[in-house]
Lab assay of single mutants.
Amino acid sequence: MSIQHFRVALIPFFAAFCLPVFAHPETLVKVKDAEDQLGARVGYIELDLNSGKILESFRPEERFPMMSTFKVLLCGAVLSRVDAGQEQLGRRIHYSQNDLVEYSPVTEKHLTDGMTVRELCSAAITMSDNTAANLLLTTIGGPKELTAFLHNMGDHVTRLDRWEPELNEAIPNDERDTTMPAAMATTLRKLLTGELLTLASRQQLIDWMEADKVAGPLLRSALPAGWFIADKSGAGERGSRGIIAALGPDGKPSRIVVIYTTGSQATMDERNRQIAEIGASLIKHW
């Protein structure tokens, strides 16, 4: 067993022997301040990774656009098919120029040779490549099948209805392509620590998230040296922004954090800054 596999296998073990965790309302004060600064709703939840206990939450059962955070769930569904012998990570998928959609920095470079399922998941999570996500959605049967996968996990809230990039439209009061912070946090925890996926697939999923290259201005910008984070960000229309993450000190994750916002007129930089400040408060009061 590799060191990384050992780390993920012992996530519940280490967490069980940690000192009790206590909620700190100071972080919620910052979440509410972010709402004021952005002029928009902000949803927040913080779960203990081992027990699933909610440590703090704000608007945990209000719907927010998922945006690209759905790509972690998508690759979880792909990995479940791999575990069941219905898919192979090494299978190569070929596609054409007509398949390319807006923001496809990886797939646009491989029109000639195609990409493997493993490479597509890596591109979808680490670079948020939209064509990679659409190609992977095709392998599982489309958005409705991802929703069905989530329902089978016990998540009857999260739903995907459309493809990239239309799913980022974020129309107010439109339930399409949305989740709730509580539902997303619980589902992410199941994917990373539950028995739904094999140990190898859980490790692969967290490795992809740990290698995320496009979430630097968010929670990662607030992390002290030595902290662990595996995350996936999302951005959408109407001032929408979000991030889902597993993080913790001492090089291992111990909490799940989900943050979503929508309806702001603020710039992307300002949305990023507010999420980073929430992260800084979380870490300060850990």
Rank of each mutant, 00 (worst) to 15 (best):
S2M: 12
L38F: 08
E119I: 01
R189M: 10
D207L: 12
E210P: 00
D113S: 13
Q88C: 10
L167H: 03
I259L: 10
W163P: 09
Q4R: 10
D33E: 13
K284I: 11
A276F: 12
I259F: 07
L205V: 06
R241D: 02
L199V: 15
D99C: 06
L120S: 03
T267I: 09
I244K: 00
L167N: 07
Y95V: 08
N98H: 14
S221V: 11
G141Y: 05
H5N: 14
S68P: 00
K213Q: 14
S233G: 09
L191V: 09
D36L: 15
P249I: 06
G39Q: 11
F149R: 07
L192K: 01
I11R: 05
P25E: 12
A77G: 08
F70M: 14
A124P: 00
V117I: 10
L160C: 11
V72D: 00
M115R: 05
H94N: 13
S264D: 04
S240P: 01
L192G: 03
N168I: 05
Q88K: 12
I275H: 01
D99I: 09
F70I: 06
E35I: 03
S51T: 15
I244P: 00
Y103D: 04
G52P: 04
R59F: 03
N173I: 09
P249N: 08
N130F: 00
D48I: 04
G226S: 11
N134W: 02
D269H: 12
R273G: 12
F17T: 11
Q203H: 15
I244F: 03
T131D: 01
R162I: 02
T138C: 13
M209Y: 00
G39N: 13
N152K: 13
E62V: 08
S264Y: 04
P253T: 08
V117N: 03
T178P: 00
R238V: 09
E56I: 05
K213L: 13
V78L: 09
T187K: 01
T186W: 15
L146G: 03
G114A: 05
T147F: 02
W208K: 01
Q97C: 08
V78H: 03
A185V: 06
E166M: 14
M209G: 03
M67T: 10
D212N: 08
L191D: 00
H285E: 10
D177H: 01
G263P: 04
R238W: 10
V72P: 10
S128Q: 00
S104H: 06
R159V: 07
G236S: 07
G76R: 00
I11W: 12
M184L: 07
G251S: 12
G216W: 08
G236M: 02
S2F: 11
E270G: 08
A9L: 09
T139C: 09
H110D: 05
L167D: 03
F64C: 02
L219K: 04
R41N: 10
Q203G: 12
G90T: 13
G39A: 13
I125T: 06
L167A: 08
W163L: 13
D83K: 04
L135Y: 03
I206V: 13
L79R: 01
L49Y: 12
N272Y: 02
L150P: 01
R92F: 10
E87H: 04
F149Q: 07
D113M: 10
R7P: 10
D207M: 11
S281D: 08
G248A: 03
D177K: 01
L89P: 07
A185C: 07
S281W: 07
N130Y: 05
T186I: 15
L100S: 04
N152Y: 13
G263R: 07
L199H: 13
G234C: 06
K30F: 07
I93D: 02
I283R: 06
G39Y: 10
M66H: 05
S96R: 12
I244S: 03
E166F: 13
S57G: 11
S68L: 00
I206K: 12
V106F: 07
R41D: 07
Q265E: 15
I229Q: 02
L111V: 15
A124C: 08
L191T: 06
D174G: 05
G76Q: 01
R255Q: 03
Q86C: 11
M66F: 09
E56Q: 11
R118L: 12
N130H: 00
M184S: 03
W286V: 02
K30V: 11
V106I: 14
M127F: 11
G248C: 02
E46G: 05
A148Y: 13
E108A: 11
A40S: 10
T112R: 14
A84E: 12
G216H: 08
L196M: 13
E166Q: 14
D33G: 13
C121A: 08
V117D: 00
L223Q: 05
R63G: 04
A15L: 15
L191Q: 04
I259H: 00
R220V: 03
G248M: 01
R189A: 14
W227T: 02
T126F: 03
L219E: 03
G279F: 05
S80N: 12
L111C: 11
L120K: 00
S80F: 12
K53I: 14
E145C: 13
L199K: 11
W163M: 13
A225Y: 12
L247Y: 03
T138R: 15
P172H: 10
A215N: 05
I54R: 10
T126N: 06
S122G: 13
L111T: 12
G114R: 03
P20G: 06
S122Q: 15
E56A: 11
A182F: 15
N130E: 01
Q97Y: 15
D174H: 04
T139E: 15
F58A: 09
I256Y: 03
G141D: 06
E169N: 12
E195Y: 07
V117R: 01
V157E: 12
G234Y: 02
L120V: 05
K213I: 11
G194K: 09
S96L: 11
A222N: 15
V78I: 10
E164M: 00
F70V: 12
L205A: 03
M115Y: 03
D250C: 12
H110V: 05
I45Q: 05
T107R: 01
I171K: 14
M66V: 13
H110Q: 09
G251F: 08
D174M: 04
A183K: 08
N134I: 04
D269S: 13
D174Y: 03
I243P: 00
G239D: 02
V8A: 13
A148H: 13
R255D: 00
A23T: 04
K190Y: 12
A133P: 02
T187E: 03
G226W: 06
S201G: 09
D269L: 11
P172S: 12
D155V: 01
H24R: 13
L219R: 03
A280C: 12
E145K: 13
I171M: 15
A170D: 08
T186E: 15
G234A: 10
D269R: 11
V258F: 02
S128V: 00
P249Y: 05
A200M: 11
Q204H: 11
V106R: 07
R81F: 09
D177T: 01
